Simulated assay, not measured.
Amino acid sequence: MLIIQKLLPQGEGLAPVLLKRAGVLALPFAHRQHHEANLSNGEGLELGLRLPKGSTLRGGDVLVAEDGSLLRVEAAPEHLLLVRANAEHGKPGDLLRLAHQLGEMHVHMEAHDDHLRLPGDPQLAQWLERQHFVLAPEVAPFDPPALLSQLPEVMEHNHDHDHHDHDHGHAGHVHGPGCNH
């Protein structure tokens, strides 16, 4: 097993020729949330990810293995939900309010002008349908921006919001409908 202990965000400091020669490690979003994991590169090479606690892999990041080899991280295609406001049953601002509510629930998302992209969670889909949002399935790479609740410097200060009283020690856990927190 090849051990990986170093992360270069977006290949910072590497020459373009080295980035071009790097192998590719395509991972779904959930797997990119773990700082320690045993993975496979899809070609039979076993990898031991041993990054500093709190590390999250983003598309374009570069991992440096113990033998000096480089792996460029890519967001693998996965099942997603495209969420749009309902023109018949909705009102202006519904999508913005939903994005705020999902953020409060710690649901990862990509926000676009006219839609949100969310993990393809069946419970989440049912909850959104009950609120009359228009949903469409999609298979695509998912690389949402980090949630503020995941940033160590934000987590260390005292929160004055009741919804932050639960334990944040459950890396990779997505809060949403059906969550018992």
Rank of each mutant, 00 (worst) to 15 (best):
L8Q: 02
L8K: 05
P9F: 07
Q10F: 13
Q10D: 11
G11S: 04
E12S: 10
G13R: 02
G13V: 05
G13P: 01
L14F: 01
A15F: 06
A15D: 15
P16C: 09
P16Y: 09
V17A: 15
L19Q: 14
R21S: 13
R21A: 15
A26D: 08
A26H: 12
L27I: 11
F29C: 00
A30S: 10
A30T: 04
R32K: 07
Q33T: 04
Q33M: 14
H34S: 12
H34P: 00
H35F: 13
H35G: 07
A37R: 10
N38I: 07
N38W: 08
S40C: 11
N41Q: 05
N41T: 06
G42M: 09
G42P: 08
E43P: 00
E43Q: 14
L45S: 07
L45V: 14
L47E: 10
L47G: 04
L49G: 04
K53D: 12
T56N: 01
T56V: 15
R58Y: 12
R58H: 15
G59Q: 09
G59S: 15
G59M: 01
G60F: 10
D61L: 03
V62F: 10
L63D: 06
A65M: 01
E66F: 03
E66Q: 11
D67I: 11
S69W: 08
L70N: 03
L70D: 03
L71C: 04
R72M: 14
V73L: 06
V73Y: 07
A75F: 13
A75E: 12
E78F: 02
E78Q: 15
H79S: 15
H79N: 10
H79G: 07
H79T: 12
L80R: 11
L80W: 06
L80Y: 05
L81R: 04
L81S: 04
V83A: 15
V83T: 13
V83H: 08
V83C: 15
V83L: 13
R84V: 06
R84I: 01
N86C: 13
N86Y: 02
N86S: 14
N86K: 05
A87G: 00
A87Y: 00
E88S: 13
E88I: 12
H89F: 14
H89L: 15
H89I: 00
G90A: 09
G90H: 11
G90N: 07
K91T: 02
G93W: 04
D94C: 06
L95N: 08
L95C: 04
L96M: 11
A99K: 14
H100N: 00
H100M: 01
Q101R: 12
Q101K: 07
L102H: 06
L102Q: 05
G103C: 02
G103F: 07
E104M: 12
E104D: 04
M105I: 01
V107Q: 14
M109Q: 15
M109C: 11
E110D: 06
A111P: 01
A111G: 03
D114E: 13
D114F: 01
H115V: 01
L116D: 03
G120H: 11
D121P: 00
D121F: 02
P122R: 06
A125C: 09
A125R: 12
A125V: 08
Q126V: 02
